[in-house]
Write a protein that binds this DNA or RNA. Structure first.
Lengths: 203, 203
DNA sequence: ATTTATTTTGACCAACCGGTAAAAAAGAAC
DNA sequence: GTTCTTTTTTACCGGTTGGTCAAAATAAAT
């Protein structure tokens, strides 16, 4: 709407989105309340509703931002690069996102587990398209003998599930590893796994 | 308490747990309501509360049952069997559970994503212990040269995350695969992955 | 058939839910 | 320093929440 945002608007919009991310990622949409978000943002509930028309609007704004960040790494895969290196780099980027943006990962997980009522269309639209392209690239790499044969969809699912696991199931991971930081080990394991999975010459 | 349950108690307890599983697995604890569960169980809300003292009690009863089923497959791993076969069989059992009990998987996922407020102790207790034993077995297999070296914890995380992914992110998987049943392909991929990961003689 | 134990219902409650209306307070522009 | 706009607060609304209570209806035991 308005091109210029007041410094107050700028600050409070950011505070609300930050608070919404905290709350929604922990309790899901239906489990979260405006009072919770308002309190965490340091605002009164009516004041919160002055910036975002509804609880739904906050949630949608967060998901819109999230989906951009979420899909971005897949666009940086170079179909003319070295296949194993490209796939490994992609997986590592996804793992880094789990490490640095665990709340975003959990927000996404909550939404999808609950049937993706808000982002279902995006999943069946843009996500499906962009995955389709990646699948095509992987199939080409296989035909050209550059990587060992795999079912591309399930390879992608493996990468997604493993990397997101460290954010979404953080409590469980830390229950088992105690004080050990999971991420260095996870990265090494992921690299090793993809190498053994995909590399033609097994070292 | 009472050793013998009436046929009515038997029927209604089951109906309530079934309804609770449906609702809690879809909306999480805080996002679910007693009215929803009561309606789905075909009872009035006060009648529901006659069988379970509180919303919390239903949720806990479900989680208790779930945790048993969840941990059971890991106990069937034979440390004296063929390592790759044992691990692969375990992974396939977990995948079958995702296929046949997706709501249980999502209930568990919801609980853990939200910080495991109810089952945190079990994760840090029994789960940690039983995983520790499996980790020991895998390390022994590696030292005996029966499988290629891997970090056991992260291998286990990989198996968990991949198999649960097909239940928890079902909507996303189907958005991409459309009408293709994910599970046959998933099983083949999982077997191939573990074989390339772990087998000494790469075929 | 009557006593007794179990099950179900309807009416209700205080707290909380998402959201509104209007007026007061604070900032910005001049 | 006064006008005008933006921001915040106070008071409130109808609906829903988890849960209670006592009475009614049903089932079981004798």
């Amino acid at each position: 709407m308005s091109k210029t945002q007041t410094r107050i608007q700028l600050k409070n919009n950011a505070a609300i989105l930050a608070a919404g991310l905290n709350v929604f990622s922990q309790f899901g949409f239906r489990g979260s309340t405006l009072d919770q978000i308002a309190k965490e943002a340091g605002l009164s509930k009516p004041n919160l509703i002055y910036y975002f028309a509804s609880k739904d609007a906050i949630y949608r704004a967060l998901l819109d931002q999230l989906l951009e960040d979420w899909l971005e790494p897949i666009y940086t895969i170079d179909e003319d690069g070295d296949p194993v290196a490209e796939i490994t780099a992609y997986a590592k980027r996804k793992l880094a996102m789990s490490q640095h943006y665990p709340r975003e990962s959990r927000l996404f997980a909550n939404e999808v587990i609950q049937g993706a009522p808000q982002i279902g269309d995006t999943l069946r639209g843009e996500l499906r398209r962009v995955v389709g392209r990646l699948v095509g690239a992987i199939e080409r790499w296989i035909q050209e003998g550059k990587i060992r044969p795999v079912e591309p969809h399930h390879l992608i699912f493996s990468i997604w599930s493993i990397t997101q696991h460290y954010a979404d199931f953080d409590v469980q991971v830390r229950a088992i590893l105690k004080d050990t930081d999971p991420f260095p080990g996870a990265e090494t394991h992921l690299e090793e796994m993809l190498h053994r999975m995909l590399s033609i010459d097994t070292g």
